[in-house]
Amino acid sequence: MRLSFLEPLYAERGPFTSVYLDTSRDTDDAERAIAQRWHRLREQLARQGADRASIAAAEEVVGADADVPGVHGQAIFTAHGTLVLDDELPAPPAHDVARYGTLPDAMPLVAQHLPEIPYLAVVVHYRGLPTADASGTVAVAAEAGRWPVSRVAPGERLLRRVPVSGWHGAAARLGHELDRWARRTGADTVVLGGDEWAGNVLFRRLPRALRERVVRVGGPAPAAAGRALLEPQVAGVLRGRMAAHDRALVETFLARRARGAGTAEGLAAGVAALQRGQVTALLLHPPRPWQPAEPLWTGPGPAQLALTEEELLSFGVRAPRRERADEALVRAVAGTGAELVVVPADEVPLRDGVGALLRYTDAATPGA
């Protein structure tokens, strides 16, 4: 997964306030509950030494996602009295959390973007009789998304309505349009729902390569404004999957590791590779939400990280700071143009829960 959505965050210098807040709108007293949660977090930030201007900047956007219905959350980052990043969370955080520190607490936001699978959702249904001379219409809704963020940030949507009598020809044209759309968005899967007859006509007229990625699901489920098309069906189809692009990176890592070249493993080796800008993709075991991570030492640059203060001092970094490893690793991945892939520990065992697919190797690369 590319971390380009974090670029605005790392374009700023800290210290940062990082806020994760449940902003669900699934109860009658939602606004009051959000205000109470924020009041507790605001007090936490004040006790941690956050400046008033940064707390106020966060407060201005707390609950500003009122147009997003249902269960969800909000991630807010501010620095020096300015809003840096405000992102919708597809699920509420396990606990409302506020932190003030030199680096932003970005790993929980990254975890909410996983597995970031690109897909198309398509719903077709008709009114009338499925015969060539029948009156009535076939309605089509299609949407591109990246799961699970599309739950609260739906993508581009296509709407079509055609006479039942012209559906066979229209379905062929629509099939090619969907194929081009899937290629452009890199969709791994097409989730097709709706009426059986109209759906069968479209399915048979899809180009073969796209047809092989189709998963048929139950009847139409109209999406609420601000929510993904076919949200529950898409969740069922994609649950437990990994994006095809990430899966390819994992397979490349495993093949190279078996050959003993082109990878690094373990925290020390991964950190060293990030220092040199060698990492194509950093593989991590799933983070333990809201648990403290072991520390690393960091400097102002994203590649300035090390296991010891002495190592950074030897690189000429003045006044290194001791930071959580997850915060330092995410910043290094984003800042060096690498990708992040989270893999289950039982599927891909990694020393220290860290592995790296390398762009290049040299004699100085430990663990390569």
Rank of each mutant, 00 (worst) to 15 (best):
R157G: 06
T280K: 13
R247H: 14
A221M: 12
W290T: 14
T280G: 01
E177Q: 15
W297A: 11
V201F: 03
H168I: 05
W290K: 08
A171R: 02
P163Q: 03
Q275I: 03
P154Y: 00
G218Y: 04
E196I: 12
A224I: 04
A228F: 03
V234N: 12
A172D: 03
A243W: 03
L254H: 07
Q275D: 07
P287L: 04
L254K: 14
A187P: 14
L229W: 05
A153S: 05
A269E: 11
T252A: 15
R208L: 07
R173Y: 00
A272P: 01
A248H: 14
A171Y: 04
A170G: 03
W290V: 09
R257G: 08
Q291C: 09
R247G: 15
E212L: 08
R241W: 01
A243V: 05
P292R: 10
V237G: 10
H285K: 00
G260I: 02
P232K: 05
V162H: 07
R247Y: 08
A209Y: 00
L254N: 08
W290F: 11
V271M: 09
R241S: 07
L238E: 05
R247A: 14
A223I: 06
G240S: 04
V191P: 14
A198Y: 12
R247L: 14
W297V: 07
A228H: 11
G186H: 05
A182L: 06
L230S: 06
D188F: 09
